[in-house]
Each structure stands twice: as structure tokens, then as C-alpha cells.
Nucleic acid binder design. Structure first.
Lengths: 126, 126
DNA sequence: TTTTCATATCATGATATTGTGATATGTTAT
DNA sequence: ATAACATATCACAATATCATGATATGAAAA
């Protein structure tokens, strides 16, 4: 696909330019684009929500703080699985935790997390 | 990890039960959980947003409707890549399109999509 | 009809992610 | 010190996803 071919007289008979404003539209739309890095960060952020186990953990913590073994029990999942997903959630600042003796009490870091979870849920339920 | 061991007298000396309300908390939290299928749907929905190319397309369409070649040009991406991602977006009802001659004009199906994109962006920018 | 252009689909190798068994760390109880 | 327990980390096989080259479809132009 080559959109840049011009005739000798400077006109452009590319079909895509027939609808007058395509080039302007493309430029206008490009101006509003975030940076490459912001797109990457954003996709990483949403990737967190793209796994059912992590969503389950987030949904539990949206109701109350919990320790790891409570999460395992509530979700009927093996401890390694939960611990691994909690590590990912921690690394991405989705959850924080507080050590209490040998237990770790986890909670959501941020109200944005809960908001996005809820808007998404609303969307798929409609 | 085995949380269910009981003593002969019926007491449970599992550390996790020492903090009085753990069992109640687990039950209360479990009651609010969506179904397994809803978690799967929701994770699939968020997976759409977890790829930078798809996010870019969404962000462009949040500004204006565009045809495939405009998207290729704005993103400087090869046509196959864009077309493939558009197929995924279509299959998940994130975008819709309208045929105009040999062109296809794409737009977002839903305001939820734009909203989630914007809340996410706000989150990573803060 | 033949060519050109816009778009879609198919097949594939490279890469990433998932859940889990094995094992380690660190805390409390005995 | 030793055992029991809560949690974390490592390693890995199974699976999924990505971008892209090759190719197909279908519409307008020549």
C-alpha cells in the first residue's frame, strides 16, 4: 500500500484522497496521540485485568482486605497460583500489602483499579 | 496449604482463624463474586486493551472515524497488522464499520470503550 | 477485461503468559 | 532447636498472542 504517489502536475489521484479531508483528518488525529511509551504503559496496565485469576483477586480486594490464604480459600485456588498473581499485581502497583506476623494482608492501592473493574463489568453485563 | 484440619474437640488452631472474622470475611466476600463466565468475559474484554496497536487504533477512533489506510498511515504500520487487529476489535464489538465503495470506515461501537481508555490513560499519567 | 487499489484471511515462527510442582524463606509455637 | 505454617520464588511444559509475508476478495478505473 503506497499512499504517497503524486502525478507530475502535483495532483494526487489516490482514492483515499478523494474524500477531501483524509489527509487533514489523519494529521488532526495524530496530534492527539499519546507517546509510544504511554501506549506501552497503558497496554501493560490493562494486561493486568486480562486474566481471570487476577480479576478475581481484584474483585475480592474491592470488597475487603484479605490475606493470601483467605484468597486461596475464597477462589479455591492453589497457593502458588495466588502468590504468583499477587506478585504480578504488586509489581504493577495494583495491590499493596502489610505484613502481620507470618501473614500478609493485601489490599488495593488505588480507587482507579476498582473503577476500571466496575466499568468493565458494567459493560459486559449490559 | 491445608486450612481445614480440625482438632478432636472441634476447635481449629489454624493461625488464619485466630483473627476472629476470617471465615466470615471470606464468606461475605465470596457472596459478591460474579460468575466464572462473567470473569472470563471480563478478562477477554480487557485483553483487547492490553495490546499497544489495538490501543492506538482505539485512541484514533476516539477522535474520528477512519478508513483502514488512514489508520495505517497515522500509525505507520503495515496493512496486514492493522487489518488483523481490526478483525479482533470487530469480533469483540469494540469497533464497527461501514463499507463505502472499496473503503471501510471504522468507528467505535460504544462510549464505554472510550471511557475505559481514558480512565486508564489518566491512571498511568498520574 | 485487465489493472489497480483497499481490505481481509491464512499460515507461521518468535515470543510471552499461564498454572503448578518443587523448594526456599521467615515467623510462631512447642 | 524443631515443627508447623503462611507466603514467596524458581523452573517448566502447555498454551496463547504477535507481527508479518503470502495470498485472496472485491470494487472502481482504464
Amino acid at each position: 500500500m503506497e499512499m504517497k504517489d503524486k502525478n507530475l502536475d502535483g495532483t494526487n489521484d489516490d482514492i483515499c484522497e478523494v474524500f477531501d479531508s483524509h489527509e487533514d483528518t489523519v494529521n488532526r488525529v495524530k496530534e492527539r496521540m499519546p507517546s509510544e511509551e504511554e501506549y506501552l504503559d497503558l497496554s501493560e496496565f490493562f494486561k493486568i485485568f486480562s486474566n481471570p485469576t487476577r480479576l478475581k483477586i481484584i474483585s475480592l480486594l474491592a470488597v475487603d482486605d484479605l490475606c493470601v490464604c483467605d484468597i486461596c480459600e475464597a477462589l479455591d485456588l492453589n497457593q502458588t497460583t495466588v502468590s504468583n498473581q499477587l506478585r504480578i499485581l504488586r509489581a504493577n502497583n495494583i495491590v499493596k500489602f502489610q505484613k502481620e506476623g507470618k501473614m500478609a494482608r493485601y489490599s488495593l492501592t488505588d480507587l482507579h483499579i476498582e473503577m476500571i473493574y466496575k466499568v468493565g463489568l458494567e459493560h459486559i453485563l449490559e
